[in-house]
Design a protein around this nucleic acid. Structure first.
Lengths: 351, 351
DNA sequence: CCGGTTATGTAAAACGTTTCAAAACAAATG
DNA sequence: CATTTGTTTTGAAACGTTTTACATAACCGG
């Protein structure tokens, strides 16, 4: 293909002039610039990114690693990140770790040798020793998203998970529920632990006793949530409402309820964290706590580019965004009749 | 960061030897190789992709352009492509055109200057003149996916859209339906036109007269499908079943039916092309015609890498994959009572 | 002991940009 | 007119690899 020398030859100028007329128009006379541009046009010249980044020591590439591309939360994140990044002149190298820490590490290696200008990382699982050492070896800016971890002083943008879980739980309590099941994520990751904490806080605030038997760990996965929901509803005293800590678990839960022939919200109320485009196509329409996904993506890119451009330095900080309750149809007041052992709904605070 | 010279210095060898011990182990003695590897390890050296691709004239990058990353079909495609590609040592540069031809063109420009080794393109809309000239300027292999177009002799992997639509329509006919609505995609794209054709074929095969009033173009979008469904059901003689030509339109349709207080499949049966993970979480579980998305992704990568490696040359061909009917709960026999003007269900073929 | 093969290592030339420093030219100043 | 100042233009170095072509040493059959 055409190289910069070809353009120079055709325009009758030096390669330096060609480069300048493209990258620093001020440095070259109008007349020459026009000639150069014409030559570029007619040769259909496009500079080779490899050569350019070799010389400029920067690739114009951003790495984005997500834990599960099929999860709508991440899909929307990808969309947002890709949009803003390309708007700012960056292309994004997408990596999907598929919840596999080993793949995540491999991706990090690749990004390192691609010398991307920065990395946005939605890490899978907790941070292993090897990964954190890998991360500290990488000399480019990294911003964490969704899940944070400390110790490396990285920037992070996360949901206020405590608040989100609090909102969800409180909404159920307001509707009169006191036995509220929780499908929890793994407590080894911040999103798991913090959402559990928010749930407990909300119970405490309403003086409802925390019952460990009502919280089941379902690893943020649909199938596990299905099983957990079945287990929950087969309890001698099943919960009158269930709170799923993410979207996939909400789906598993809905499927289980449907298979158990339990009607929602008549028999059991349901709420979850993560709103998604089709939450209102379900029947009933799902009441959820929405994350500002798009904002999170935008902020992550902003933090990253600020660091890349040197507008930001020092150890990073964690940025918390607020969730928003989206009330639809899946939460109702508990119906006494549906309980095997009808309990006094608005009664004594303890128990 | 550490360069290959640093490694060479530390190991006490030439840079050529370092390069060889990594890329062509046969050419260097065991002893030296060990020393070099140790040096690499201790310096934590990673070759710079930019320099390497400049010299090798190939980047190890694949470009993937999808029309809408939030559409589960494309999400799954991305997942498949990314998986196989990275397995074969390629990284993928993901581009989302968001159904905007202008953005698609911009992405193509970027990919061209990145000198990706190949491009997988799920093009948005019909192929404009500028795009096709752009495509023919790009000197790297391109394989089309989902939507094909001729004239450029490109490889393509697509669904047998005629068959898929035929299967869907025929399934409804078998259940006894004769007034079958169609939410069609734009006929300017192959997926739109072919699915419409398949629908008509199936009607013809069962000697059902084609009624243009029953097919509404909804641009493959959810909201348009919602509106179209409402229009369809408000017809003096509404259809007893509706066939949505893709997943997003199926969702819009379900939402509309629900808002219209029409029960599915009691009042109206429903089927669509594109299976997706949550089709069986809906109530009723959706009967769909599934595309072999993963296979399509795999085949696209295969075709691409074959061309990249020179195992394949000449003008490309179109590869059609077969769809598969997934029967769940959304199709039932039409109930006479639900029709405003009860019509003889199994009666005369014409009208 | 010599010409020839094989094994191993290396110097140096690419690859296609950007950019620094200097050259060439024009204009302005003393 | 000689010098300075300012504006355009350019030659050449640098970026970090891979790879070609060659050098050296070792080995072997004659």
């Amino acid at each position: 293909m055409a190289t910069i020398r070809d353009v120079a030859r055709l325009a009758g100028v030096s390669v330096a002039t060609v480069s300048n007329s493209v990258n620093d128009p001020g440095r070259v006379s109008e007349q020459l610039r026009a000639r150069v541009l014409k030559a570029i046009e007619s040769l259909n010249y496009a500079p080779r990114a490899a050569a350019r980044s070799l010389r400029k020591q920067s690739s114009g590439l951003l790495g984005l690693i997500v834990a599960d591309i099929t999860n709508p939360f991440f899909t929307e994140l990808v969309q947002a990140v890709e949009g803003i990044a390309s708007q700012q002149g960056f292309s994004v190298l997408l990596c999907n770790s598929d919840e596999d820490p080993a793949r995540e590490e491999k991706h990090l290696q690749v990004l390192r040798s691609q010398w991307v200008d920065g990395i946005i990382l939605a890490t899978t699982g907790d941070v292993s020793l090897s990964r954190s050492s890998l991360l500290s070896q990488i000399r480019v800016p990294v911003v964490l998203v969704d899940r944070a971890f400390d110790g490396l002083g990285l920037d992070a943008v996360v949901l206020d998970n405590r608040l989100a879980a609090h909102q969800a739980t409180e909404h159920l309590i307001r509707r009169g529920h006191r036995r509220i099941g929780l499908l929890s994520g793994p407590t080894s990751v911040t999103t798991g632990a913090d959402r559990l904490a928010g749930y407990r806080e909300a119970l405490l605030a309403s003086q409802i006793r925390f019952d460990p038997g009502l919280v089941l760990e379902a690893g943020f996965r649909e199938q596990q949530a299905y099983d957990a929901t079945v287990a929950l509803m087969r309890l001698p005293q099943p919960p009158t409402a269930v709170f799923a800590a993410n979207n996939l678990m909400a789906i598993g839960m809905m499927r289980a309820l449907s298979d158990l022939d339990l009607r929602c919200p008549d028999d059991v109320s349901v709420i979850s964290i993560d709103d998604f485009a089709w939450a209102n196509v379900f029947r009933p329409k799902l009441t959820t706590v929405a994350q500002p996904v798009r904002e999170m993506g935008e902020m992550a890119v902003k933090l990253l580019t600020d660091r890349i451009n040197g507008h930001r330095s020092g150890t990073g900080s964690t940025h918390m965004l607020e969730s928003r309750l989206v009330i639809r149809e899946s939460c109702a007041a508990p119906v006494q009749g549906t309980q095997p052992e009808p309990m006094p709904v608005e009664s004594a605070p303890s128990r």
